[in-house]
Simulated scan of single mutants.
Amino acid sequence: MRVTIADVAREAGVSKTTVSRVINTRSEVDRATAARVRSVIGRLGYVPSSGAVGLARGTSRTLGMLVPSLTWSWIAEVLQGVVDTVEAAGYGLLLYTCNRGTESVERFASQVSARAFDGLLVVEPENTLDTIAAMHRGGLPVVLIDDRGRHPAFPSVVTTNHEGAAGAARHLRAGGRRRPLVITGPGHFPCVQDRLRGFASVLPEHVVAPGDFTERAGRDAVERHLAAGTPFDSVFAHNDLSAAGALRALRAAGRTVPDDVAVIGFDDLPMARHTEPPLTTVRQPAGLLGETAARMLLGHLGGVRAPDEPVVLPTDLVVRRSAP
C-alpha cells in the first residue's frame, strides 16, 4: 500500500501542512521538527508526488510540448534537443500529440487548465494556432518551434527555408543543371511556399510536382514525369523522404545519379547518409531548434524576456554524392 502524506503526519505527530513545508524546504518549521519529519519519511519510504511538490512551490518544474504527431520525420531530433536541455535544467517534460484531432486538443486544453506544466513548447498541429495564442494571452508562457512563416504574437524559433532552397538551386546551377524537377510538400504549408520562392529566385525555369513529404510522393513524381517524357536533369525535393523516393524511382528506371540526374533533399535526416548514393541535402538544425526553444522558455520562466522577433537559425547545404 502506498504511503501517504497523512501517514507521515500521523507518525511524526504533526499536521500534513507541516510535512508539506518540510518536503518543500520551507523555513517556517523548526529544525527539530523538520528532522523528525524527515526521519519518518525515510523510515516509511514516503515518496511525494511531483504534483504535490509543485503545488506547494507554486510551480511544477515541468514543461509541456505539443506536436502534431511523432511520425513527422524530423520531430525526433527536435524532441531530443528539447529533452537534453529541459533535463539538464532539472525540469520534466510532458509530451502531447494531436493524433485524434479535436479530441486531442480538448484533452490537452484540460491539462493547461489544471496547470500541469509551467510553460509550453509547440510544433504547431494544423488549425491550433488560434487556440495556442489564446492560451498565451491567458498567461501560459509559449515558444513556437518552426512558425511556418506566420510569426504569431509570442516567441518562436525558425529556420531559413527560403535561403536553404536558394542555396540548393545555386548548387545545382553551379553544376550545370538547368532543368530541375521540384517535388514539394503540402501546398498550404508556408514553409513549402518559402522553399518554392527561394528556389525560383535562382532557377526560375523548373517543373513543380506537388507532393506530401512522403517517400511515395517522391517516387510517384519521378515516375510520372519520366513516363510523360518531361525533360529534367535534377530533382530538388522538399524533404529527405521525398528525395529518397525520387532516388528509388530513378534507379528503377535505369537513370544514374548524379550523372543523369542530380538529387537534393531538405532536412538532413540520419537516413540521408545511407541512401544510395548518399543524399546531398539542406540541413535543418532540428536538434538546435528544440534546444533553442527550450532555453528561451526556461529563460522566460526565470525572468529573462524572450525576443519579440523570431529567432532565426540558418540552414546549410550538406554535399554528398547524389549532387556533388
Score class of each variant (00 low, 15 high):
E215T: 15
G211D: 13
R219E: 12
V192H: 05
A243I: 06
A227T: 15
L241H: 11
E215N: 09
L203P: 09
F232Y: 05
A243F: 02
T184I: 07
T214C: 06
A200R: 11
P210S: 11
T214A: 07
A244P: 01
V202G: 01
Q193P: 01
S242Q: 13
N239C: 03
P190R: 10
T184V: 04
V192Y: 08
P180H: 03
E205H: 14
V208S: 06
P231Q: 13
Q193E: 12
E223V: 08
S234M: 04
F189M: 12
A200K: 14
V222Q: 07
G198I: 00
F199Y: 09
R179V: 01
V222E: 04
V182I: 14
D233F: 06
T184R: 01
R178N: 10
G245I: 02
T230I: 11
L196P: 03
R195P: 05
A237K: 00
A227W: 13
A200P: 11
Q193S: 11
D240L: 02
C191D: 13
G245M: 02
A227E: 12
V207S: 14
P180Q: 03
V222S: 02
L196H: 03
D233T: 12
D194F: 12
A243P: 01
T214S: 14
Q193D: 12
E215H: 14
P210T: 09
V202E: 08
H206C: 12
T214F: 05
E205L: 10
H238K: 10
S242A: 14
D212N: 14
L203W: 08
D220E: 15
V207R: 13
T230V: 15
P186H: 08
T214M: 06
R197H: 15
P180E: 02
D194P: 10
L241P: 03
P190L: 09
P231S: 13
L196T: 03
L203T: 11
H206W: 08
F232D: 04
G229T: 07
R179D: 04
R197I: 03
D233S: 08
R197F: 05
A217W: 12
T184M: 05
G211E: 06
P231K: 09
D240H: 05
G218P: 08
A217F: 13
H238A: 12
E215V: 13
G211R: 06
R224E: 11
S201I: 10
S234H: 02
V222D: 04
R197N: 13
G187K: 05
F236H: 04
R179P: 04
